[in-house]
Simulated assay, not measured.
Amino acid sequence: MSFFPGQDPVAGDAYSCDALAHVVVPRTVDLGDGFSVRRALPSARSRMVGPFIFFDHFGPAEFRAGTGLDVRPHPHIGLSTVTYLFDGEIMHRDSLGTALAIRPGEINWMTAGRGIVHSERTHGTQRTFGSPIHGLQMWVALPKAHEETAPAFAHHATSEFPVIEDMGKTVRVVTGSLYGAISPVPVLHETMFGDVVLKAGHTLPIDADHEERALYVVDGTIDIAGDTFEPGRLLVFKPGDRITVTAASDTHFVVLGGAPMDGPRHIWWNFVSSSKDRIEQAKADWKAGHFDKVPGDEIEFIPLPEK
């Protein structure tokens, strides 16, 4: 899912915290009816953080009765899409025949590999009566050895993720490892993603176990070494430094990262690859109708952008 052909986000002001490499100010687009999307990755200074090459924060918003999300069938190669909701529900369908709703705290991990097509829509009573929507859409690049792997889809329920609760903090370990807990989600490259709620006045250390790390503030205000950060900022940290986050108010944020990728990646529309030629081939294949259809959603599709 890619809501808009966004331009690069921009870097924020300089801050005093030595552990910060830079702060990304996402580009925000209002798609109507109060539904906004903030894109933090890729940015001019951070094309990736670990394997994360794309990071959108959408909502919170409330769809009116009879309306909802309608992301028509579209293709991907060379990546895994990671959908994670804080509120609402999205119906996922793909060319493998998957038809499954995702709800808050669950995760849909769709590996495109050599090519997959999917759609994401609001359906059923959610559309009839109106519904909230709030969450993240992220892409992780695949290692070169797995860029052309067979497409796959995995759904993980909320109950599968380890949760650490202690002294005003709650950390859900969604992928990888954090604070000694390990997620059950299988990944092809060292990947870390955690969902954190921190009560006002409490602190959370961010260890240097993963070489590349970032933090995105979803709600509330945090303090790091005297600098305060409001919602909608992606903080990218330098390798090797241990950081302590203090909640200036009740706060919700996510941490993400992992090992550096095995070389640069090219990204165009919904395609990611280490090879520009492979992206050109994917563009031609989509335009020619060579990708598989999505069962149950075969009629509509998103055409290839003109540029």
Score class of each variant (00 low, 15 high):
residue 120 E to P: 08
residue 302 I to F: 08
residue 19 A to P: 04
residue 154 A to F: 11
residue 108 N to F: 10
residue 206 I to M: 10
residue 147 E to K: 00
residue 102 I to F: 05
residue 238 K to W: 01
residue 115 G to N: 03
residue 78 G to I: 00
residue 252 H to W: 10
residue 131 S to Q: 10
residue 273 S to D: 01
residue 207 D to H: 10
residue 253 F to E: 04
residue 42 P to Q: 05
residue 129 F to L: 12
residue 55 F to W: 15
residue 105 G to N: 08
residue 227 D to V: 00
residue 17 C to V: 14
residue 71 V to A: 10
residue 177 S to D: 11
residue 170 T to W: 08
residue 8 D to N: 14
residue 200 A to N: 10
residue 239 P to W: 05
residue 28 T to E: 14
residue 305 P to E: 12
residue 88 G to N: 07
residue 235 L to Q: 02
residue 22 H to Q: 13
residue 199 K to E: 15
residue 283 K to S: 02
residue 147 E to W: 00
residue 248 A to S: 11
residue 175 T to C: 13
residue 274 S to F: 06
residue 175 T to Q: 09
residue 183 S to V: 05
residue 254 V to M: 05
residue 225 A to K: 12
residue 27 R to P: 06
residue 163 V to A: 06
residue 94 D to K: 02
residue 204 L to Q: 15
residue 134 H to F: 14
residue 127 R to C: 09
residue 115 G to W: 06
residue 67 T to A: 11
residue 229 F to M: 03
residue 264 P to W: 00
residue 114 R to F: 01
residue 193 F to W: 11
residue 114 R to L: 04
residue 293 K to E: 13
residue 195 D to Q: 04
residue 267 I to F: 13
residue 203 T to R: 10
residue 193 F to Y: 15
residue 27 R to T: 14
residue 284 A to M: 02
residue 115 G to T: 02
residue 152 A to H: 11
residue 83 T to K: 04
residue 180 G to F: 07
residue 265 R to G: 01
residue 193 F to D: 04
residue 256 L to G: 06
residue 192 M to R: 13
residue 219 D to N: 14
residue 208 A to P: 03
residue 266 H to L: 03
residue 8 D to L: 14
residue 62 E to S: 07
residue 288 A to G: 05
residue 264 P to M: 00
residue 296 G to S: 00
residue 143 P to W: 02
residue 306 E to S: 15
residue 97 G to V: 09
residue 136 L to W: 08
residue 166 D to C: 05
residue 11 A to H: 10
residue 283 K to E: 10
residue 209 D to E: 15
residue 28 T to V: 15
residue 56 D to P: 00
residue 273 S to Y: 03
residue 216 Y to Q: 09
residue 241 D to H: 13
residue 236 V to N: 08
residue 225 A to G: 06
residue 205 P to Y: 08
residue 177 S to L: 06
residue 130 G to Q: 05
residue 213 R to D: 07
residue 9 P to K: 07
residue 71 V to F: 11
residue 194 G to S: 14
residue 40 A to L: 09
residue 61 A to F: 07
residue 184 P to E: 09
residue 188 L to F: 02
residue 259 A to M: 06
residue 169 K to V: 05
residue 207 D to I: 00
residue 60 P to Y: 04
residue 291 F to R: 01
residue 8 D to P: 12
residue 40 A to K: 07
residue 156 H to Q: 04
residue 292 D to E: 15
residue 141 A to P: 03
residue 126 Q to C: 08
residue 186 P to L: 09
residue 158 T to G: 11
residue 179 Y to M: 14
residue 291 F to G: 01
residue 39 R to E: 06
residue 224 I to Y: 10
residue 186 P to S: 11
residue 121 R to P: 07
residue 91 M to L: 15
residue 303 P to Y: 12
residue 41 L to F: 01
residue 52 F to Y: 06
residue 65 A to W: 00
residue 123 H to V: 13
residue 92 H to R: 09
residue 178 L to P: 01
residue 202 H to A: 12
residue 11 A to G: 09
residue 280 E to V: 07
residue 212 E to Q: 14
residue 13 D to H: 12
residue 13 D to V: 06
residue 124 G to H: 09
residue 236 V to T: 04
residue 264 P to E: 03
residue 45 R to T: 08
residue 271 F to D: 00
residue 136 L to D: 02
residue 14 A to G: 05
residue 40 A to F: 01
residue 44 A to T: 13
residue 299 I to K: 09
